[in-house]
């Protein structure tokens, strides 16, 4: 028996989970362990938890339900403790820090933005259109010139151009969106994404934020995909 831990909350969190049960193949009720002003949201597990889709989804559902009532500090997926006492000790060891973080995140949600290049050909056409040098290299190769340096030169030029345009677009999007956020963070994107941005948006700015990002998304073309996920628990802002 062990306790899988989902999140830390204030002790007065109503914990309205609509009967949601926890992770594992024999799910048990989600409950709390309280220590002073804090609670940890847990459920009992009787087996080794693996990172399977079902359990990832459950973890996420518990957090999404919790966040709608009050601020929470979501844990990374996959943490468990041996018993209630261990959990209480962990809460007591860092009480001030957790309370401060809950206060900092109060009234906010995370929105996560990914931008990727879905139509690479379109981007390449733009690059060739705008760069006489690239055009010339391309035409010479197409005309049958065998010099192996030509494709290398063309490729390097194009790579630089693609990078520059994507960096520029990413920077522009960040600048346009961060005025709506209390905090933001970027992470290295994974190809084919070229922007991985998280924003901490207060509830009273949400409508303006969503209108702004919708407006931006409408104006971005050139084969670029803009994906917004949210509102989310503040995964990216808990430390």
């Amino acid at each position: 028996m062990a306790l899988y831990v989902y999140a830390i909350t204030g002790k007065d969190h109503p914990l309205r989970l609509d009967g949601l049960t926890g992770v594992g193949s024999h799910p048990t009720p989600v409950r709390t362990v309280t220590a002073g002003p804090l609670s940890a949201v847990v459920s009992e597990i009787s087996e080794e938890i693996r990172p399977k889709r079902r359990d990832l989804q459950t973890h996420r559902e518990v957090l999404d339900k919790l966040m709608s009532d009050a601020a929470i500090l979501p844990l990374q997926f996959g943490y468990f403790a041996s018993d209630d006492q261990t959990v209480q000790q962990a809460l007591e060891a860092d009480v001030d820090r957790y309370l401060a973080t809950l206060a900092r995140l109060d009234g906010c949600a995370e929105y996560h933005v990914r931008v990727s290049q879905t139509d690479e050909d379109e981007l390449l056409r733009q690059v060739l259109h705008d760069s006489p040098e690239a055009r010339e290299l391309n035409e010479r190769i197409r005309a049958g010139e065998q010099d192996p340096q030509l494709p290398l030169a063309l490729g390097e030029l194009v790579a630089r151009e693609v990078q520059g345009r994507q960096d520029s677009l990413a920077a522009g999007l960040v600048q346009a969106l961060i005025p709506y956020a209390r905090e933001h963070t970027t992470h290295p994107p994974s190809s084919p994404d070229f922007l991985n941005l998280s924003l901490l948006v207060a509830h009273d700015r949400t409508e303006d934020f969503l209108a702004a990002q919708a407006s931006l998304a409408r104006q971005i073309e050139g084969g670029v995909d803009f994906r917004l996920t949210g509102p989310l628990p503040p995964y990216s802002f808990v430390d």
Binding site: P74, L75, F77, H112, S190, A217, F226, T229, G230, V238
Partner: peptide
């Protein structure tokens, strides 16, 4: 501009939140 927006767990894929769930958080 091909916007997709997903709220909570409703219909949205695990894909974009996988990194958040696994790598971020306390």
């Amino acid at each position: 501009g091909s916007v997709s927006r997903s709220g909570g767990t409703g219909g949205s894929s695990l894909y974009d939140v996988l990194e958040l769930i696994l790598d971020r958080g306390l």
